[in-house]
């Protein structure tokens, strides 16, 4: 191989070299999910064959069991719906809170924002008992509204903090100019702040959605009826039967469940990256 060819290979493919270990780590679980979702059980448990490829022809049996033998599509719909509603609730509450904490001067502002962040650190395993009483009091037990009510308890603190960073990046002078031109504070917030922090809103929305989408403990505690389960709870409750794991169907469920999140990230990637970097600097 000539030195020129070698140089060209290094130039064209060299940048991929440091990237490849990372790609292997993040993509391997998906590869494993795909292989297991279509592998026959016999093939999966056979220790004498390569676990990374098929020895026997692939099968759709696991997918059929998932779709026809469980309420998977209903769980998927529930998760998407709960995720969308929680994003709306979170943004509706976090945006004014973030604005108030970042912009307005009032007593206890700093301790309040710290307390809000600290509340994010309380694990759901401690909170589910007192929250049960709240959910019961409102008559939401065993309904998806229980989760719509409870999930903002962990999405709100995080998203408020995230959005506070974005609000601080908007120069105070722009907002003041708008107010001099006749805008009320609310109008300035709506017409000046909100359009500027769109990347932050999208970032907060994505975080709220993914945190909600993967949640398990509250779903387990507040939901019992199969038709109301979320994807993370439904798949594990119906496809892990004591010491019998339906690996193929579990992986099929995980694979299909990952699609909506992947689509949302794909459509919002540039805003998301912008949001992360912009929010990091004032």
């Amino acid at each position: 191989m000539g030195s020129q060819t070698w140089r060209r290979i290094r130039r064209d493919y060299g940048p991929y070299l440091p990237l490849s270990p990372y790609l292997f780590v993040v993509l391997f679980p998906f590869y494993w999910m795909i292989i297991t979702a279509f592998k026959r059980d016999n093939d999966l448990y056979n220790l004498t064959t390569s676990p990374f490829w098929f020895k026997e022809p692939p099968t759709l049996d696991h997918l059929k069991l998932l779709i026809k033998g469980t309420l998977f599509l209903q769980w998927l719909q529930n998760s998407l719906l709960i995720g969308a509603l929680v994003v709306l609730v979170t943004l509706a509450l976090a945006l004014p809170a973030a604005y108030a904490l970042a912009r307005m001067r009032f007593p206890m502002a700093q301790p309040l924002s710290t307390a809000m962040f600290l509340s994010y650190l309380i694990p759901p395993t401690l909170l589910f008992l007192p929250l049960s009483q709240l959910v019961r009091g409102l008559g939401f037990i065993d309904s998806i509204w229980a989760l719509v009510l409870v999930y903002p308890s962990f999405t709100l603190p995080f998203c408020t903090w995230l959005l506070m960073g974005f609000v601080r990046t908007v120069p105070r002078e722009i907002e003041e100019s708008a107010q001099i031109d006749g805008c009320s504070r609310l109008q300035a917030f709506r017409m000046i702040i909100l359009p500027v922090i769109v990347p932050g809103i999208i970032t907060a929305g994505i975080f709220a959605f993914t945190l909600t989408y993967q949640e398990y403990i509250y779903a387990l505690t507040f939901i019992s009826a199969s038709a109301n389960k979320t994807i993370s709870y439904g798949v594990t409750s119906d496809l892990i039967r004591g010491d019998v794991f339906y690996w193929g169907s579990l992986m099929s469920g995980a694979l299909i469940g990952a699609v909506p999140v992947a689509v949302i990230y794909a459509f919002s990637l540039d805003h998301f990256i912008h949001g992360l970097t912009a929010g990091a600097l004032k």
Binding site: I141, T221, S237
Partner: peptide
């Protein structure tokens, strides 16, 4: 309502706490 057996105690505890 079918629930994985390892999760049943947590579920019962929550129901006893709320008496419902």
């Amino acid at each position: 309502d079918h629930v994985p057996h390892l999760q049943i105690p947590a579920k019962i505890a929550a129901e006893i706490a709320t008496q419902s």
